[in-house]
């Protein structure tokens, strides 16, 4: 078990990763929808009204799913690395493990 500062930094990293996933998925979808809507209304002046919006909504949705996959992969990889480092320090000897346990409880 690391010091409280390392634990806090790890929690902050998890928090930042989680908010990035939530925001990136939603915002890429809406970026697609708004781009399609403006292409429909301003560029083609309403002649192709629902179709480009739907097409770009699908592109945006795909981008959101892609973002979710990439960010989730990175998040799990990072967390596994940190977890491995932590276990490496904790499971050194019996004595150290005991020390870590009491450290965690205090």
């Amino acid at each position: 078990m690391g010091t409280i500062r390392q634990e806090l930094a790890l929690a902050l990293r998890h928090f930042s990763n989680a908010t990035t996933i939530a925001l990136a998925v939603v915002l890429s979808t809406f970026a697609g929808v708004i781009t399609g809507y403006y292409l429909d209304i301003k560029f083609f002046e309403g002649k192709t009204y629902p179709w480009l919006t739907i097409l770009f909504f699908l592109f945006g949705l795909g981008g959101g799913i892609k973002n979710f996959i990439i960010l989730t992969k990175r998040f799990t990889k990072e967390a596994e690395k940190k977890d491995g480092e932590r276990k490496g320090t904790v499971l050194g000897t019996e004595d150290e493990q005991h020390q870590g346990d009491t450290d965690g409880q205090s």
């Binding site: 890429s28 781009t35 795909g62 981008g63």
Partner: peptide, 18 residues
């Protein structure tokens, strides 16, 4: 290609809007 472009736009927007 458009999917990748929109995923990049989503990441840009999430970075600034947060």
């Amino acid at each position: 290609f458009p999917i990748e472009v929109f995923s990049h736009i989503g990441r840009i927007l999430s970075l600034s809007i947060r």
